[in-house]
Design a protein around this nucleic acid. Structure first.
Lengths: 223, 223
DNA sequence: GCAAAAGTGTTGCGACTACACCCATGA
DNA sequence: TCATGGGTGTAGTCGCAACACTTTTGC
């Protein structure tokens, strides 16, 4: 045990996956298997040490790429965890980020013996205090999706309103009224119709939308 | 320069002070003068290293007591700042907390040559990136006061509705309708009348209230 | 035509704002 | 009695939830 605390940067990653039996997607996340003590063999959040020339968010991105191959479409600092008892016999302070990755990116993600995807609400036993961290990240995601425009970052570049609504429903775990959802999105003025339709289904073809930044809408100018 | 990042815990402290010319209180904060490089002589947020057996919040409390003698009535983690360029030639990651201290506590605070109070909106030049941190803390305080019951922590144990309203007005920097403010507080059900009045002023004596915890109202179960 | 999802209209409720108004005290 | 802030009443507005209804496609 060293006499000064070590710093690590870890990330809770969310992506949407179609469930086989249902048409509704659900939240999944990639975990990595620990290959050394403490908690050897258990699943854990991807992370690693803080490089001497990296900012905290750069370290999060860099570790994400190295361990899971993913590049997030949204990244935000979650919390710093530093309880003395959280990391066995060495003192470890973890700066934890949370991230959203798009549809395409998540499905491209290679399967690996030491990296596996799990449903966010049914994880295996996790190393350290990582289950607590995941619970907090889920709480933050559910809060933030209600007032910030982040849900589209779990989809691709263009999407239908029904797809976007299914993202909200997967995160909030309750059905939303399609009519009211449409009006809420219209009021936010952050969606632009591409002019294209998505055909093929056996019903009226829906419009495709793209996310557009609304000028005065930066919820947190810092961070 | 060492090859691993150092960890420090700092705190942005808010208290209310009466302004001499006006009856309206305003937000003030204590700063400490740096007595060594880098930024020697400049004012900075109180803080210090993370003790090997302390949790992060314990370190914040402990450093606060040691540098300013204050014990906060509210303490919450703000953000972790770790940009490589923020701390001169050594790498320093600061876990920053923000705190509210009560009326009584703030006025008891001893004057010191190396500790001084400043109005939160007119600070001197600060060391490191501390002005950025203060701006973020102010933004968080103004947001949080609108949906969380924290304003009373800037007062004492009991207070009148007018005093509580003046806290909101000082933080939000705009006048609030007394009638509507009263109803909002009543709707939140987090105030209990003590039965006592505050007399002495040349108008109808106001009731004194005490803050009471509302069962299902924990905004952030973690953190 | 029929099923299914896209998209529109309408109504009622609850929260908030603005402001008129009464109450109780000290001087 | 009057000035001052404590405290109550009330009407208008806005946003949202609920749900009926019309439109457009594939089969």
């Amino acid at each position: 045990m060293t006499d000064h605390p070590q710093i690590a940067v870890s990330t809770v990653i969310f992506a949407l996956r179609e469930t086989d039996d249902q048409a509704l997607p659900a939240l999944w996340m990639p975990l990595v298997r620990r290959i050394r003590a403490p908690f050897e063999g258990l699943w854990a959040l991807p992370g690693g040490p803080l490089g001497i020339d990296e900012s905290l968010s750069e370290a999060a991105r860099h570790n994400l790429k190295a361990t899971t191959g993913l590049a997030p479409r949204y990244l935000e600092q979650l919390y710093a965890f530093g309880d003395p008892a959280r990391s066995g016999d060495q003192r470890l302070v973890s700066i934890v980020y949370w991230a959203l990755v798009g549809n395409d990116e998540a499905s491209r993600s290679e399967a690996d013996d030491n990296v596996r995807w799990f449903p966010a609400d049914a994880l295996p036993a996790l190393a350290f205090d990582h289950q607590l961290i995941v619970d907090y990240a889920l709480w933050r995601l559910r809060n933030k999706v209600e007032y910030a425009q982040i849900a589209h970052r779990l989809l691709g570049e263009t999407f239908t309103l029904a797809q976007l609504r299914s993202v909200y429903e997967a995160i909030l775990q309750r059905p939303l009224d399609p009519a009211n959802f449409r009006r809420q999105m219209a009021a936010a003025k952050s969606l632009a119709a591409t002019g294209e339709m998505q055909s093929g289904a056996r019903h009226r073809p829906p419009r495709l939308y793209r996310y557009v930044e609304v000028p005065g809408t930066t919820p947190n100018p810092w961070a």
